[in-house]
Structure formats: C-alpha cells, structure tokens
Computed example of a mutant assay.
Amino acid sequence: MKNISYILIFLFGTLVFAQNHQLFDEANALYNEANYTEALVKYKTILDSGEHSAELYFNMANAHYKLNHIAPSIFYYEKALLLKPNDKDIQNNIAFARNMTVDAIDAVPEVGISKLIKNVTNTMSFDGWAKAAVIFVVFFVILFIVYYFTYSTSKKRFAFVTSNVSLLLAIVALVFAFHKFKLVEKDQPAIVFAQETKIKSEPNLRSAEAFVLHEGTKVQVLDTVSNWKKIKLSDGKTGWVLDDDIKMLKTF
C-alpha cells in the first residue's frame, strides 16, 4: 500500500508541476501582451498551488509594478530577493518600485565593532558556518591523533599548534553560526499595505499617534500583542500598527 501511495503522490506532483509550468508560460505570454491583470490571475493560481520561486515572485512584482500597485510590487520583489538576494534584475527593479513610495526614511548606519561582526557573520549562511565548524573539528581530531602518535619533536610541535588553532577556529565558526541564526530569527520584515496607516505609541486605538506610514514602506516587526504589531523603521523609530495594515515577508 505504501508503494502505491508513493506512486500516486509522485504522479500528482508531476501533474501539478506540468500544469504550473503551462500556467507560467501562459501568464508570461499575457504579460508580454500587456494583459497584466490576467497574467496576475495565472501567477496567483500557481502560488496558491504551493509553488514558490524567485522567478514567480519577480514576475508577479513586475505585473503589479506595471499596474502601479506600489505595496504588492515591493512585497513580491522583496520575497524574490529573500530567495535570490544577489540577483541584479531583482535589485534593479525593486529600486524603481521603491521610488514610488511616499515615505523617505533614512537608515541609521552601523559603525564600529558591531558592523564588523555583522558583516563577517553575513559572509555565510547558518549552514555554512555550521559546516565550517564541523570541518575544523575534524581537522582538530586528525591533528591531535598525529600529535599523539608521532615521535618527531618538530612534527609534534606542528601538530599541537595546528590542532589547537583548528579547535579555536571551530569554536569561532560555531559562535558565528549561532549569531547568524539569531540574526535570521530577529529579522522579521514586513511591507505596509494600507494606503495610509497611523502608527500608535501603544497597542490600542486610544493611544497617541507616533507617526504615519504609507503603502510600500518596509518595516521590521519586533513584537505582537493581540492584533497589533510593534514595528521599527530603518531610522530607529518604533510604534504599533494593526495587523491588517502590513504583510509579513517571510511567510511562504
């Protein structure tokens, strides 16, 4: 029975993939004919089937951009960037989309040791740092064995020093792996979808207005209380916004 189930799952997956591939081609053809709304319907159908890709998000963003949909275009460009952060086409197009936004928010530059540590941490993914730690541990074990069994004084000294260096590098890589994990977990970006939303100083409608944001602005979500999200802007300002006024980017 299990084999039959696996075969049925495989056949269903193949069928869905084929259908989505056809829908993607049809949507692209509609886009090239400037039928952006109809193209979006087909792209959305693919998305609803559970397929997620940078190419799909990029094309959806392009269609929304052509229709002057500020928030959706930026939202899908940002989702495409999450999957392909170094893609030049996505980077160029999102720059144009961001020019349509109303809010001009200056980013507070990071300086000093914190900036250096963050830059080094971001050179690799969490998996990359974890693999590096494992490799250095393996080197440490091999070199320690060499140190234990060799009789040459010079070789013992070399093996002792390099094994300790490998152990130190393994610890450093492990620290960076955990730091990268924390950075990823802490990074909870969202896009404002409301045409205009009043950001409150506390998570209730009676509290004072802190500032106003408009559609397309990117924020960081820090906390959640009931139907409110605490957000932070790139310039350091914080406040509370209603759940319905923003969309989280890391929901796939």
Rank of each mutant, 00 (worst) to 15 (best):
P189Q: 10
I90Y: 06
L213R: 06
V221T: 12
H179P: 00
N227W: 03
F10I: 14
A39F: 04
L233K: 05
A177L: 04
Y148S: 12
F12C: 08
Y147W: 14
Y76N: 15
F149S: 01
K186L: 02
W228R: 08
F139N: 14
A18I: 10
N122F: 11
A18V: 07
S207M: 13
T224Y: 12
M248S: 11
A177N: 02
V192G: 02
V241P: 09
I4Y: 08
K156R: 15
K180M: 03
M60A: 03
K200W: 11
L205E: 15
V146S: 07
Y36D: 07
E202W: 08
E51R: 07
V138Y: 05
F211W: 13
A80D: 03
K155Q: 09
T197F: 01
N204E: 14
E33T: 09
I4G: 00
K200G: 07
H21N: 15
T162R: 01
Q188M: 06
V141C: 07
V219C: 08
S234T: 13
T217A: 13
H21A: 13
A39I: 03
F10P: 04
I231F: 05
K180E: 00
A61Q: 07
V184Y: 03
N99R: 12
F178Y: 13
N119T: 14
D245P: 00
E215H: 05
G239S: 09
A132V: 06
K115M: 05
G236N: 08
L242N: 10
Y147R: 12
T217R: 07
Y6S: 14
S125R: 08
L47P: 00
I199F: 09
M124C: 09
I142W: 06
D25Y: 04
N32D: 14
K182A: 10
E110G: 07
A170P: 06
D25M: 10
K155M: 11
I145E: 05
